[in-house]
Design a protein around this nucleic acid. Structure first.
Lengths: 230, 230
DNA sequence: AATCGACCACTACAGCCGTAGAGAAAACTG
DNA sequence: CAGTTTTCTCTACGGCTGTAGTGGTCGATT
C-alpha cells in the first residue's frame, strides 16, 4: 500500500540501503537534510533512484522508519531474548537493574545516532498519523517487557510501574543524548543505582514473595507474552 | 552578536512576534516548515520582514529559541519562585510530589506545543553548538531546583538524584507527548504516585532529619555523590 | 528647514526541492 | 532467440528556499 515496490526477500534490496542512508542523514543533518537527492548521493546510487523507490516524501519517511524498526529489533534481540523465550529475562531486582543499566548505557554510548534518528521520527509522527502506527508498535514491545519484569518482581501495579520504568530510561537517554546533560552523561554505575532506587521505591509494598510463574498477571490485556507461545 | 537588531524594551518588537510565530510553525510543520516566508505569512507581516530581522536561517532559529526560553521562564515562575526566593519551594516529600506532579501534568496537557517545539530545537542543537549554549542554561535552572529539593529532603546524593528526577519527568512528558504512550497519558494522580515512589526509593537511606537551611543553590560544586569533575 | 541616518518593505536571483514521466536496460517467457 | 513485461535511469518542470541588495519612509538633529 505504501510504496514498497518489492518485498522479495532473496534480494537485500536497495530499500535497506536507502533506509540506512536516510537514517544517517536524519542524524547528521536533521529533517531538512533528508531529501531524495541527498539519499542518492549519500548512498552512491544513480540520481533519481530514491525518487523511484520512494516516490513521495512520506514514502521515504516510511522507508526510514521501517528500517529503523528492524534495526532496533535486532538490537534488543540479544539482550531481551535470544530465541523468543522471555524466560531468559532476569527475575530478581539486581539482575533486572543490571540489564536495564546495560541497555541504557549502551544506548547512550554506542546507540546515540540510533536514538537521535528515533527522536526525529517521533517528532515527525506527531504530525503524521501513518508514522505513528509503526512507531507505537515498536514501543509496545519494549514496554511489554518492562511490565513483565515488574510483574515478576511482585509489583502491585505492573502496568504503571513498567510504563514509568520505560519513561525513566527514556528520560535518562534523552537527557544524555539531546538534553542539557549531554556534556556529562551518567556512568553505567550511576544508572544502575538509579534503576535500583526507582525499582525499590516501586516495590516498597510489593507482595513479599514474587509469584513462581514466569509472567502473566498484568492488569490489562496484552502486556507481553504468554508463557507458552508457538 | 547574533542578529537581534534592537533590544529596546519599550517596543515589544516584531522580534517576539517572529519568535512566537516561528515556534508555532515548528510545532505545526516541523523544522521543514520553518522558513522565512512562512513566518512572514503566519505572522501577518509584509513579505521580507523575517528575512530582515533574521538574515540567516541560523539567526531565525536563535530568535525562536530565545523567545522560547523567555516563555518557559515565565511558565515556571509562578510555580518555582515568585520573586527569586527558592524558599517558597515545599520541603516535604508530599509537597514536592504535588508540585512536580502539577508541573508535569500541566506540561502534558496544556504545554504540549511548548514541549514539542523544545524537542525540535533540542534535536537541532545536536548539530548546532550555538543553540546548545542557550538550551543548556535553561535546563540548568530546572535541574538546580530539583537538586535543591532533593538536598532538603536529606538525599545523600542530591546531584544524581536531582538529575534523575528531572530525567524521570522528562521521560514521562516525552512518552506522553511524542512517544508511544501519547494515546493514554498518565493521570495526574498516577504521576504523583510515580514521583512519590521515585523519591522514596532515592531517600531510603536518607539522613533521618533534613537540614534546616533552605537550599544552597547547588550549581555544580558541592554535594556530588561521586568524585566528579567540578 | 534641510539633512541625515536608522528602520523597514520589496524585489531579485541562484539553487534546491518534490514529483512525474519517457525511455533504456534487464529479466523473464515462450 | 524474439517478444514482452518488469525494473531502473535520467531528465524536466514548477515551486519554494535562503539570502543579498536597492530604494523608500520617517523621525531626529542641527
Amino acid at each position: 500500500m505504501t510504496t514498497a515496490k518489492r518485498t522479495n526477500p532473496d534480494r537485500p534490496d536497495r530499500l535497506v540501503l536507502i533506509g540506512d542512508t536516510a537514517i544517517r542523514l536524519l542524524v547528521e543533518r536533521g529533517m531538512r537534510g533528508l531529501t531524495h537527492r541527498a539519499v542518492d548521493e549519500g548512498a552512491g546510487l544513480p540520481p533519481g533512484s530514491t525518487s523511484y523507490y520512494a516516490r513521495t516524501r512520506a514514502a521515504l519517511l516510511e522507508v526510514a522508519l521501517a528500517r529503523m524498526t528492524v534495526l532496533e529489533a535486532g538490537e534488543f534481540a540479544p539482550a531481551l531474548a535470544d530465541g523468543e523465550s522471555p524466560a531468559a529475562l532476569p527475575d530478581d531486582l539486581m539482575g533486572i537493574a543490571d540489564l536495564v543499566a546495560a541497555i541504557v548505557d549502551a544506548a547512550i554510548r554506542d546507540g546515540r545516532d540510533q536514538k537521535i534518528a528515533r527522536y526525529e521520527l517521533a517528532l515527525e509522527a506527531t504530525r503524521r498519523p501513518e508514522l505513528r502506527t509503526v512507531y507505537d508498535e515498536a514501543g509496545a514491545v519494549f514496554r511489554g517487557a518492562a511490565v513483565g519484569m515488574l510483574a515478576v518482581l511482585g509489583s502491585r501495579a505492573p502496568e504503571r510501574h513498567g510504563r514509568f520504568l520505560v519513561a525513566w530510561c527514556e528520560g535518562v537517554m534523552f537527557d544524555a543524548i539531546a538534553g542539557a546533560g549531554w556534556a556529562t552523561p551518567p556512568s553505567r554505575a550511576e544508572i544502575r543505582l538509579g534503576v535500583i532506587e526507582l525499582l525499590s521505591g516501586m516495590l516498597a509494598d510489593a507482595t513479599p514473595r514474587p509469584p513462581a510463574r514466569p509472567f502473566g498477571n498484568a492488569s490489562t490485556s496484552d502486556m507481553g507474552d504468554s508463557p507458552d507461545r508457538s
